[in-house]
Design a protein around this nucleic acid. Structure first.
Lengths: 162, 162
DNA sequence: AAATTAAGGATATAAACTATCCGAAAATCG
DNA sequence: CGATTTTCGGATAGTTTATATCCTTAATTT
């Protein structure tokens, strides 16, 4: 049960987009170079963010991506689900229904007890991600990343933002 | 991020093994027929449980599997990890290290802030599974499964346990 | 001695993930 | 206007993982 690498990419890209000045866009090319990622494939992750309405896009030179909402209004779960999908990690195939002792046409009133536990764990995972906002990540980063690196990174990025 | 179907199979099999009388074993064949699962492939899941020391085995007719510990001493996480592995769901490839603005030889003091959030969520998932014991599942099942089905299932199973 | 069983290796198929390439449409800029 | 840049989506291909089956070996029971 491993998350796609695109999840990591999308989170880091959102962190950068969150630091962009108002009204500026950042292209796939710039984000790929900044993180050392394959441009064409990263593009798929960014398209997922776009489809989830987490980012807005514009075409042409100086075009690219920017956040569709304030970083405080975007949480980790939204970003993760945008690229990973919303499917639950546990799929119940209802194997209890194959019990040869069951009466023909018998119908369970509740979802399988095994599935309920697994789904509860899934929900705990989602809850944790839901509680962390993109602005929390930016706050942590600006504390932990050396100020000079933080500054030069955005200088580098803005030079590529047209 | 989807769990293997073997996780579901292992949990249901453990629930049945938890209801076996002291000293009895249940074969792969019986467990596969009870749940309508491919015997050879289910065998791999049971082997995983065996390698994790969650079950004990014996060979020959009337051989098979039994729990290695009391159901109250086995939790969901142990079973899930036995077949799914213990790898964390999020892998940090440290893409921040590719930032072209970073000084040569610069070394981060802390793990990546993105990874820390993802790992916290992972731990919340594991915590939930760790808190549910196999005996809890058996308790729920014996409440929810109709008594007659519950009884006849174990009768069926014991007939195949030699 | 014969039948049954777990264990593990080998193999085959299907699905998912990773990655690249291309064309279309839209926006910018000279 | 025309050239460039960009997102977007489709097509495709390679790699890895999951699913499934088969077969041999060794141990155990009857």
């Amino acid at each position: 049960m491993i998350l796609k690498s695109q999840v990591e990419w999308a989170l880091h890209c959102c962190a950068i987009l969150a630091g962009l000045p108002e009204g500026r866009y950042l292209s796939t090319k710039a984000l790929a170079e900044l993180h050392g990622l394959p441009k064409e494939y990263l593009s798929k992750a960014l398209q997922s963010l776009s489809q989830a309405s987490l980012v807005e896009t514009t075409l042409g030179p100086s075009g690219g991506y920017r956040l569709a909402r304030a970083p405080s209004e975007i949480n980790f779960l939204e970003i993760v689900e945008a690229v990973e999908g919303k499917a639950l990690s546990f799929t119940c195939t209802n194997i209890r229904a194959n019990n040869p002792c069951r009466a023909e046409g018998y119908c369970d009133s509740k979802p399988c007890a095994v599935a309920r536990v697994m789904w509860e764990a899934d929900e705990a995972w989602r809850d944790t991600l839901r509680r962390v906002r993109l602005s929390d990540l930016v706050g942590t980063l600006s504390e932990e990343v050396p100020a000079e690196l933080w500054r030069s990174t955005f200088e580098w990025v803005l030079k590529r933002a047209g």
